[in-house]
Design a protein around this nucleic acid. Sequence first.
DNA 1: AGCTTTGTTCAGTATTGACTAAACTTACAA
DNA 2: TTGTAAGTTTAGTCAATACTGAACAAAGCT
Lengths: 162, 162
Amino acid sequence: MSDALHDFVEEFALVFESTGTPRIAGRILGWLMVCDPPEQSATQLAQALGASKASISTMTRVLAQGMLIERVPKRGSRQDFYRIRPGAWTDLTIKRLSALSIYTQLAEKGLMLMKTAPPEQRVRLEEMRDLFRFFELELRGVVERLERKQPSKTKTKVGASI
Amino acid sequence: MSDALHDFVEEFALVFESTGTPRIAGRILGWLMVCDPPEQSATQLAQALGASKASISTMTRVLAQGMLIERVPKRGSRQDFYRIRPGAWTDLTIKRLSALSIYTQLAEKGLMLMKTAPPEQRVRLEEMRDLFRFFELELRGVVERLERKQPSKTKTKVGASI
DNA sequence: AGCTTTGTTCAGTATTGACTAAACTTACAA
DNA sequence: TTGTAAGTTTAGTCAATACTGAACAAAGCT
């Protein structure tokens, strides 16, 4: 693995780390974005990234649960091979954007509690709620346009947790 | 501070914590969204949230730098009063969405490194780049429509770091 | 059966960072 | 000047957690 590529993977990992995932998960993702061949065994990953088998094992599991990577079977080998799941970025980003709706819910919950409060007390939460409702609405449009652009790739699954 | 309100503030803080900010920052924000009156002194915050003056001091500074709250001067008192900055949520969310462009840049940087690689090696990064370019473009539309909706509130400053 | 390769689990380490207490500063008031 | 009320800074504690090493498990090969 070349030095420049190593730096790229590291930067990738740092960006990813800033969103809450452990650094090794980001390294795996970054590496799987550029490696040759695109499928890599756990052992290869551990070697390329200088990480322990233990880390690779747990992180591949997490990433696979989060639908970012997938196990790919390989005839004649009992190693586990992993690769970036097609559509991973689309799904991940839409999932994260959808998560904004939690702020709508928060504002609504707060307004319930302040039912009897005078209007000037409520405006703060009302503005917040309206804003995030707007974003929710806009997101629907974005997803629709994206689906029109790449018919196969957008299949936002629910339940995955990254 | 009522029990239900206390729970709300705590939930608010937890949601916020999941995006990387320390819990007390979320508590301050949540409290400032519902408190009466909407301006609160550092001492009041410390008391209402059961936090140390030290935490309040550092966190109000961070939140103020991040343009989420603002100091409001009060005639005849030398206490510092804070309140939610109008437009805070709008600016914060747009800032976070704009931050997605870092992924475009990541993909582009990777493609630079893989200039000479065969196309089938590059598709992974190309798809990623195209996707985030699409999101960047869409975001511009969203911001535009938002500005039309609330002319005064969207003035996305740069440089603030939350 | 024994050996080797691969991956998983678990206990322990080490680092990060949120939070506080206490000392320090500033500013007003009597 | 002394006292009080507010906020800031700093040093230190505590908890969370990422990561590893080593023991373990499974699965093929000879």
